[in-house]
Simulated assay, not measured.
Amino acid sequence: MPNDNFNRYCEELLAKYARRNQQAVARHLESLCEILRQEGNHVVQTMFGGSVRRNTYVNGLSDVDVLLIVNQSSLANQPPARVIEYVRDTIQRRLNQNPVTAGNLAVTVGYSGGVEIQILPAIRTSSGGIRIAEPGSTQWSNVSHPEGFAKKLSEVNHARNGRVVPVIKLAKAMADCFITRQDWKISGYHLESLAIDAFRNYQSAQDPKSMLTRLLTHSITAVMQPITNTTGQSRYVDEYLGPADAKARRRASTHFGQMRGMVNSCTTRAEFNALFCEGN
């Protein structure tokens, strides 16, 4: 397939992502935030904390999240599990027709069309950072500064004429389509971190195919080593893959290589659609 065709199809797909349920997602988020704001002194602030804030959200992939920052009320002195339970019960009372589930870290609210929104309870620290539930623990996490990561991604995107964020969206959609086992999937935050590194000093062509190939090529090697988590929330962005050269990392590297091969060997519109699990 000529590169011009591949790039045109990418632009059409990105436009489709932008249109698909965009207004519905915004409406759901605002409704949830309003429900939580109405809970008196328990809530001091709600803010987009995940891919919505970083503008890398792809509809249908469950990486939307809202940080619910509680103030110094009785709720702020409770363990994460109690706060998560409170948030779940509060939302369920108001949205009794929606599935609302509490996990170890967050509350997930389901909507028609496959949209899921995650509410992550957090507490603000005196230094301006936040703490969320610590994975595998009953305590709050280390102090996190997600604003720093969002700023870094924004700077890299701006330096590459706004082309990095669209490529992240394509990579997220392709990885979610290709890697079908849930326990093998690459996290959205991890892909964003790989993209920051891949494009920090990138000086080559900025068309979608060239940049998608660059991200996948870089990731084949980069995924073999843990990436330091600059937000401070945990030591590494990709702790879920284990230590350097672990089996899960080798598997992820193989997946990135296979995806790169599929991009380079794509010859028809049907094959392009199959890369992203789109209808023919």
Rank of each mutant, 00 (worst) to 15 (best):
P166T: 08
N161M: 09
M224Q: 12
V263S: 03
L194Q: 07
K16S: 14
A133P: 08
A205Q: 13
G103E: 01
I130Q: 00
A122H: 05
T90K: 00
V64K: 04
L275D: 12
L14S: 06
Y86E: 02
S154K: 12
D183S: 10
L67C: 11
R53I: 04
F6W: 09
N280Y: 13
Q97T: 14
L68E: 05
V167T: 13
D183R: 02
G232D: 08
V43D: 00
D4M: 04
R8G: 09
G162H: 05
R260Q: 14
C33D: 11
L275S: 07
V167L: 05
L105G: 01
K247T: 12
Q72W: 10
A102R: 00
E11G: 05
L32I: 02
Y240D: 14
Y236I: 06
A173R: 15
L275A: 01
L13P: 01
G128D: 02
K16F: 06
H28R: 06
T231P: 05
S265H: 12
A198K: 06
N142Q: 13
C177L: 07
C266F: 12
T90S: 03
S187D: 10
E147K: 11
R19Q: 11
H28I: 06
A175M: 09
Q258R: 11
G114Y: 13
V115I: 15
L61V: 13
G49Q: 04
F178V: 02
I168S: 01
I168N: 00
A246T: 02
Q203H: 09
C10T: 05
Y57D: 05
W140E: 09
A205R: 07
I84W: 01
N273H: 07
V237C: 09
T180Y: 12
G50W: 02
D176Q: 00
E34N: 13
N280S: 12
R160E: 10
I196M: 15
G40M: 08
D207F: 15
V167G: 03
Q182Y: 14
M224K: 11
Y236H: 09
V64T: 08
Q258D: 13
P135V: 03
L105C: 08
L36C: 00
R251S: 00
A244T: 07
A24I: 06
G148V: 14
V70M: 05
